[in-house]
Design a protein around this nucleic acid. Structure first.
Lengths: 150, 150
DNA sequence: GCTAAACCCGTACCCAGGTACGGAATGCAA
DNA sequence: TTGCATTCCGTACCTGGGTACGGGTTTAGC
């Protein structure tokens, strides 16, 4: 039985993850509990290394560990699973949203650079694009209760 | 002195943040410690509400609280501060990088959808774009040590 | 003057995705 | 068989940006 088993260190080394991560993934349901040696040490089937690569790939695609766990689980159960495609579509929409947000932010940052803004609160640039940049008093926010000489 | 002071609840309410957040920002150095009533209650200058809006704006631009704190601090000290522009530029590069990452991910997700992938580990689609999707054995990863009858 | 609301403080908890610690037990090679 | 490396387990810690709790004051309105 599983004479070709790999030990935690071997799996972790080949997959490029931390040994602790294997235990963590087991707790999270990404890896099923492997066989054990008589002494209680884990013995993984060699495919586990590849499975870890799959998990990393899915993570890179933006799936959370919970999502990856569910996807693997439906795979394990051989349910018909239109799941992956539907989830990939949903993720695609999520990512488009993020990209749009970042583009909007990018635009605003470009304005800040172009306008030569020099302060969040006391910007001297003409027609400053920073919202509310006219807050000279705020630089001292709270110190106002003290005498004004430095 | 500071007869126009606002209490924590008023500031939080007007700025749309939690009262606890004010204490948190004070600890993090985003808000300077305000004057106190005789009983020890905080009394904020009204501009604080606007400052909080500035902080939120900077956050939306992708700056961390530490970065915002530093930007406010250099502002408070009236240093010449070419800081904001330089930081905005750096943040711009950061954001471009993120956008590129997301676009690459987006492309891969599109392939997954287009290929009609149906599993992370047992995909039946032709020329599957999922890396390593040929892991039938992995569905049972670890159960291998047990008798093979269902 | 009384009461209820607001406020004080320190500390613990939340999310994700792990990483680190420490003492005991096991595994493997010479 | 010795001895060092590896693994075991539970639990605590990390980053970032807050939020919640609980017991004790202070403030404001009537």
């Amino acid at each position: 039985m599983a004479a070709d088993g790999l030990r935690t260190g071997e799996v972790a080394g080949r997959a490029g993850v931390n040994v602790e991560t294997l235990r963590y993934y087991e707790r999270r349901g990404l890896l099923t509990a492997p066989a054990r040696s008589l002494g209680g040490h884990r013995s993984y089937p060699p495919e586990t290394v590849t499975l870890l690569a799959v998990i990393k790939a899915a993570q890179r695609l933006g799936f959370t560990l919970d999502e990856v766990a569910e996807l693997l689980d439906t795979g394990r159960r051989r349910h018909p699973t239109p799941d992956l495609r539907a989830r990939a579509r949903a993720k695609l929409a999520e990512i488009d949203h993020k990209i749009n947000d970042l583009r909007a932010i990018r635009g605003q940052l470009e304005e800040v650079v172009a306008a030569r803004c020099d302060s969040l609160t006391n910007c001297t640039c003409p027609a400053c694009p920073m919202p509310f940049a006219d807050l000279a008093a705020l630089a001292d926010d709270g110190d106002r209760a003290d005498p004004p000489d430095h």
